[in-house]
Design a protein around this nucleic acid. Structure first.
Lengths: 128, 128
DNA sequence: CAGCATCCACCAAGATACTG
DNA sequence: CAGTATCTTGGTGGATGCTG
């Protein structure tokens, strides 16, 4: 997280240049992580399949998300110039390695979110 | 990520009830992860120390973030009723375990973000 | 010192309509 | 089918001023 151990305003971690920050900006995105997980499961999907699979996403957000992930080298976009056009998306090796990282998050969540829920109830009860 | 393998609109992962979604909402937060990392390094910090350490955070956001993390059981808030008041924040065991998960993210970022950067340059060059 | 209250600006995200 | 274009909005986050 780019923590400065020296004195001064310390963290520059939130700066756009911090790798961790940029990673969180990516996977913290509501749709990006869903796209990655979907492609991780299916291996390769068409635009319309992704659209159907990820409930609630608008075309705009799906396209925007896919472009971003493509730009980051996390997935590839393949156009087959048939009629009508066919476009397939697939994770790159880089994208697959990130999928592994996301799974770690998932495991923490499944193991500990119940505890978080209990803490919330407790907190809300005491502050009501 | 609560993926439905059955047919239908498939993902309900983005729903508020999905543990992974909620975890990403937490650590995807710009300031929350910084607070956790800061407390992970220092072990225990006063409000003013956190404020000085995390450059650019407003009082509003810092307070809001701390309340959220306290509510989630990730840190404790200890008030010492001296004059003037003294308030200390410290990670709970739960918060410490999350710190470990965040470190995984950091490792991925440090190992792969350079590759992401290259992909971006390439992409931007080809679309210019 | 450690906050709460208020106001405001901004922009990401959704809805809608159109197209190669 | 797989998008693009445009408009609108809500809620996040910052600035400011005040208090136990």
């Amino acid at each position: 997280m780019d923590v400065k151990t020296a004195d001064g305003p310390a963290f520059d971690a939130f700066a756009a240049s911090c790798p961790s920050r940029r990673l969180l900006d990516t996977i913290g995105n509501k749709w990006a992580s869903l796209v990655i997980v979907a492609l991780g499961l299916e291996g390769r999907m068409r635009y319309s399949e992704l659209s159907a699979r990820i409930a609630g996403v608008s075309q705009k957000m799906l396209t925007q998300t896919l472009r971003g992930l493509e730009r980051d080298g996390l997935l590839t976009r393949t156009v087959t110039p048939s009629v009508p056009v066919r476009v397939d998306y697939e994770l790159t090796p880089l994208g697959l390695s990130l999928l592994g990282t996301i799974r770690h998050l998932k495991e923490w969540a499944e193991a500990h979110m119940a505890e978080v829920d209990r803490a919330r109830e407790e907190y809300d009860r005491n502050s009501a």
